[in-house]
Amino acid sequence: MAGMVQTTVRSKLSLTGLNMTFGHGNEVVDVLENIDLEVREGEFICLLGPSGCGKSTLLNIVGGFLKPSSGEVVIDGEPVRGPDPRRIFVFQERGVFPWLTVEGNIGFGLFRLSRQEKARRIAHYVELVGLQGFERAYPHELSGGMKQRVEVARALAVNPDMLFLDEPFGALDSITRLEMRRELLRIWRAERKTILFVTHDIEESVQLADRVVVMSTRPARIRNIMEINIPHPRDISSRRYLDLRDSIFEQIGLAHKI
């Protein structure tokens, strides 16, 4: 099994016995149930599940924004106590600060750097996400896809070692979404961050991830973890891709006929 090889690689993130309930008294909702997961350094993980199943809650716990009801989150051997600039959360495009320009947004987390260093970093990441010429533009002057690039650049600029993306392309049209996936993979290969990516889109998860964590409906449990061992760039009409995709469809209980 794949697990045999992985034990030699250092574990970046490990979740053990994670449970989450909301509410108190008689009105308790179980959101997460007994989540165990190990993520390796530099791995691209997709958390896949239907809307409202609790995968965003899971991501918020890993990001340190929520405390789990029980269980442990350990990153680099330390338990997570709160949000940390070494791990940046990327929201949908709406997380871009509307009162700052593209430059201002990308430089937001760089307040500890000297002026020149800051300018150099901003220029680098503006170029990486292909927003040259829009440095002085405000978010309301940009398209959804461009705003999403700003947010990714803002996260990368502080040089984090993990990125958490919560359905980042959910609000984009399907063509832009495809482009953004290609961009994200290019950036991931260039910068080698560990990525946790939440999505409800089966195709998206199979296109992007090293491993897809398939989750059940509420309370969310890990149903299965699929290894997607297709090299990048992935041919999305290949037999291998379609087989993996279809097996996820079946696990979730969807027929692929409409």
Partner: peptide, 9 residues
């Protein structure tokens, strides 16, 4: 926005 600000320390 507040979460993002916190996240950047």
């Amino acid at each position: 926005f507040v979460d993002a600000g916190r996240n950047f320390g």
